[in-house]
């Protein structure tokens, strides 16, 4: 074949081919994006720190935390860096052993919400027509179901000792907003020439949805995943704090509840560390996630990836 008209690259000058860089895959790109600024590094450190705490922490302590009747509401000391609670249990130990429940259920909730919301939003927005009508009504329904009262009702029949169950329920009540947003993105993307071309080439629906469409909204979805995680942390600690859910398990929300309602931490300075420990943990974790959010767009948008 002749190639009379050429627009070949200037071979020697300019940038060297750097396609290989991308073969490292998404992980390499993500790692690079995450470690590019001090803020993001701090965020990663915080999140990894909490993850380690949630994963390893419970093994460091006995199944039933020791109770020290001589040191009730003790202040910070060498033996109890964050003081003790109403029955003399070490607050740091409570914090560490309580992290797993909070983190696991929040992550599960985030994933469930994102998977359900993204799938429903993509399919509804791309297919339009009857599928859209049905799925949109379903989304509206999900949006109107009041999440917290539903949990209260459910807690009368189920005890939520498993963080997974807690996460699934939180996720299933929280995907509506994302589905709406993804649907509108898919609606506008489906008219774009590159998707028209994909249809014109006869590419199958699942390829178009997951390979062509999804990567274009991936930054948005990932951002929503992180926000959903934050939201779930607030929702569940809130529920436990309010005492709506039975305080059968050890977690940060239960700690808050006990600190305020049993120890009267609001009025007495004695139990201050008991109150502050879970609060600061939640804030710190939120901060870590917010710091990392900034890197998400860079991870998924090829234009922003630094070379």
């Amino acid at each position: 074949m002749t190639t009379a008209a050429t627009e070949l690259p200037a071979p020697s000058v300019g940038r060297p081919p750097r396609g290989r860089r991308y073969r490292g895959g998404l992980l390499a790109v993500a790692g690079k994006a995450l470690l590019r600024t001090p803020g993001r590094v701090a965020g990663v450190v915080i999140i990894v720190g909490f993850a380690v705490m949630g994963f390893v922490g419970p093994w460091l302590y006995p199944h039933n935390l020791p109770v020290n009747a001589n040191a009730i509401y003790a202040g910070p000391s060498l033996a109890h860096p964050l003081g003790t609670d109403f029955e003399g249990t070490d607050v740091l130990a409570l914090l560490v052993t309580g992290a797993r429940y909070v983190l696991l259920s929040a992550v599960v909730a985030g994933f469930v919400a994102v998977v359900v919301g993204t799938t429903i939003g993509l399919v509804a927005g791309y297919l339009r027509g009857l599928a859209d009508l049905g799925l949109s009504r379903f989304t509206d329904f999900a949006l109107t179901v009041p999440g917290i009262p539903l949990l209260v009702v459910l807690s009368t029949v189920y005890r939520f000792t498993s963080p997974y169950m807690m996460g699934v329920v939180l996720g299933l009540t929280g995907w509506g907003g994302l589905a709406r947003a993804v649907r509108s993105q898919a609606l506008s993307l489906r008219e774009r020439p590159f998707l028209e071309a994909a249809r014109g080439l006869g590419l199958p629906l699942r390829h178009i949805l997951w390979r062509e469409l999804l990567p274009n909204i991936a930054p948005y979805v990932a951002m929503n995943l992180l926000l959903a995680v934050i939201g779930s942390i607030y929702a569940e600690t809130g529920l436990f704090f309010l005492g709506v859910l039975p305080a059968q398990v050890n977690n940060w929300g239960v700690m808050l509840n006990l600190a305020v309602f049993s120890a009267g931490a609001i009025g007495s300075p004695q139990a201050l560390t008991y109150l502050l420990a879970p609060l600061v943990s939640i804030l710190l974790l939120t901060l870590g996630i917010v710091l990392v959010l900034d890197a998400v767009d860079e991870m998924f948008n090829p234009r922003l990836r630094t070379l």
Binding site: P193, A198, P215, N301
Partner: peptide, 23 residues
């Protein structure tokens, strides 16, 4: 169809290789 706008006719998140190989 060859679109007017070569900037939006290619999926920005896919390499030329992925674009060509799909079909």
């Amino acid at each position: 169809l060859i679109h007017q706008d070569p900037y939006s006719a290619l999926n920005p998140t896919r390499t030329v290789r992925q674009t060509m190989l799909a079909s």
